[in-house]
Design a protein around this nucleic acid. Sequence first.
DNA 1: AGCTACTCCTGGTAGC
DNA 2: TGCTACCAGGAGTAGC
Length: 293
Amino acid sequence: MPELPEVETVGRLIRPGLVGRTITGTRVTWTRSLGGLSKPKFAKAVIGARVTSVWRRGKYLVFDLKRGRKSAGCLVGHLRMSGRMHVEAGDWNPGRHSRVRLDLDNGKAFHFIDVRKFGRLIYGDTPDRVWPALGPEPLSPDFTAEWLHENLRSRKRQLKPLLLDQSFLAGLGNIYVDESLFQAGLHPTRVSNEVRAPQAAKLHAAIRRTLEEAIEREGSSFDTFYRTPEGQPGSYQHQFLVYGRQGKPCRSCKKPIVRIVVGQRGTHVCGRCQPKPRQRSRNAHTALYSAHD
DNA sequence: AGCTACTCCTGGTAGC
DNA sequence: TGCTACCAGGAGTAGC
């Protein structure tokens, strides 16, 4: 599934083919990919506009558009489960899962391909009007161990769903959350406000390290979906410590990795390296309360 | 506030 | 072999 490292890789690889190009035509074969805009309105919005930059925020890719020197809005793309982006020669065949094609002024074309149709390529005035509120970028200076500790404390949620919540932290998905929690030795069902500063610091470092290494390896490809725009699979899947390794020995302690479900998501843990939170009994809970009253 | 269930989709696969 | 049933999974939404 494309998460931050995969989206970063896609952005880096399509950027040279898009920046400076003017869109000369559109062909939309799945209207819902446009996120509500009709095909004619989409065409009117982007034809004649020039792509001035390609950048990433969380799992979103933004193409800034200009007409002359004036801003002409932007395109905001999200790959969701199975989206791919390519810039190819004009006669390239994108296959039957092509959803949006943008003709470019050099004869080439941009393709948005998406088997499962969950992905989007949305036109908007500004990116903030397209995407919902997003948490900090995990690789930016804003994301510090102190920030993480404070914000884990201020909520009371299981770590796994919280880290998947893009309004908390932007860019993590199922794979990199499982990998980061393992590296930090934290169980996915641990409740956020019980995580102490040293553990938060460990989690912060694990998230950073996991994402940076995955970007270096151009993301992960473990099924037929994700490929870089050059058609190459990423290679980070060979580094997985827990994701998809259920039944296989933990690389650290040899105990088999187990797959559990947390918040409706397949979740991979080592029962020994990531000790389960102790279930407080009803009585102990009551006792704790009365002790404070 | 935070949980669960449901929706959107298709290809792959398990089971018969 | 060929069929059906079911599942994964990011994120939005509804209901509790």
